[in-house]
Design a protein around this nucleic acid. Sequence first.
RNA 1: GCGGAAGUAGCUCAAUUGGUAGAGCGAUAGCCUUCCAAGCUAUAGGUUGCGAGUUCGAGACUCGUCUUCCGCUCCA
Length: 481
Amino acid sequence: MATDSNKFQAIISHCKEYGFIFQSSEIYDGLSAVYDYGQNGSELKKNIRDYWWKSMTQMHENIVGIDAAIFMHPTTWKASGHVDNFSDPMIDNKDSQKRYRVDHLIEAHVETLPKEEGDKLLAKMDQLLAKEDFGGLKQLIEDSKIKCTVSGTSNWTDVRQFNLMFSTQLGSVSEEASEIYLRPETAQGIFVNFLNVQKTGRLRIPFGIAQVGKAFRNEIVARQFIFRMREFEQMEMQFFIRPGTQKEWYEYWKAERMKWHLSLGIPAERYRFHDHVKLAHYADAACDIEYDFPIGFKEVEGIHSRTDFDLRNHQEYSKKKMQYFDNDLDESGKPYGNYIPYVIETSIGLDRTVMMVLSQAFEEEDLSTEGKPDSRVILKFPPRIAPVKLAILPLVKKDGLPEIARELMNECKTAFRCFYEEKDAIGKRYRRQDAIGTPFCVTIDHQTKEDGTVTIRYRDSMKQERISLKAVKELVDKAIL
RNA sequence: GCGGAAGUAGCUCAAUUGGUAGAGCGAUAGCCUUCCAAGCUAUAGGUUGCGAGUUCGAGACUCGUCUUCCGCUCCA
């Protein structure tokens, strides 16, 4: 795997230096695996979020958006499988430093035993798991002489509980408060609102519900900058379909989502699909869209065929029918009738997308000429997601040039983000804009007063041309559409 | 979470065997007015990550703690 640790480090430093991303609570030595977006980062993130939202909702007539709360009824997470699957007792082997789920470890051992003996062991394990008797579980592992397959030793740590979900108290009186979780994924907010949205929106299958929001996971290992955070933002869409059509819709959304990625101006060879071999508990097909980060190919988006797992479970736990009546006629001429819809999920990490866009845009250019070393750092964002669209720069801060610049500023700032600056040499100002990825700079000079033209300077090519002052807004508007 | 390295101004780094914390860049204000960074002047910015200990004296030595980086696992 081609990795470029230096480039990754350079991007992280650049993000801090130019107000994109700071470590959370930095003045208190930071909070591990939590990051804040600064003045440019939040603008970039917002632009990506808006672009996704528009692509998914506005551009698809059968997809609507919602904004569900982060707090949800605790039973939600029982139904989704998160309580059982994300809070398992774990044990580490001290020699190989390999970590196992206690039940997996024992089950694997049971397979090597005669049936009767194995069943006895499993029964005992279930008993201990139910009582959450971690000491007993460790004893059981040691008594059974279970060895680590890597190190071959039985040198185990204590059994510990890892809960990947954050919990907090609902209710201000602590004795009466009940424990609730911060959602570990946004999808469940869509599933529990399935009927509300379908009925009030008079939506007919196939249709989708999209949502952007924060999710929280208590990661065991937290590292790699905003790639793996405890608090992160997901952009998800659940697409509800008729059972039996999941294959074609899965393929449809794979293609559709890849088109979106390519529309960011990122070449196809920087992407790849990675099919899941080992499927999650809720899926019958799953793949990732991976991007070639400086640290190698990593997952940005997941596309999962979730079957009716979620709706079916919510139906079971809530005792509410999660059904849809399909009036369309099947081959025999009868309506398809009642069924629990199947779901194709597209789920993309917003923070990871920011990271992807930054990785793709970041470049250090060597502009040296003979006898004069020169370089610039540039963020080649697509104009539509750049934090600042246009920099307005009077060549000198006298002779009435700032006044003309201010007029242009007032005209443009209602339409898109502009930046005004009159300090320092013009070249220096251009380079500062390159560093935050501003696609266009216009300079107002003395000629502007005579013929109403300005110099527009393009970020990537550094080319300049004269255009009419009046044409500036339209040019930028067109570029960011 | 475990093992290894590091932490000095916004950034990059200095500071003799333990003896008054400095430079360049950047930032800010002003001068100069010039279409691609590094012209001139001035200014600000530090309890050396934090806390304790050894010492007459600690940026340096010891311990703890926090954070970051490099190796081992899950995920969006």
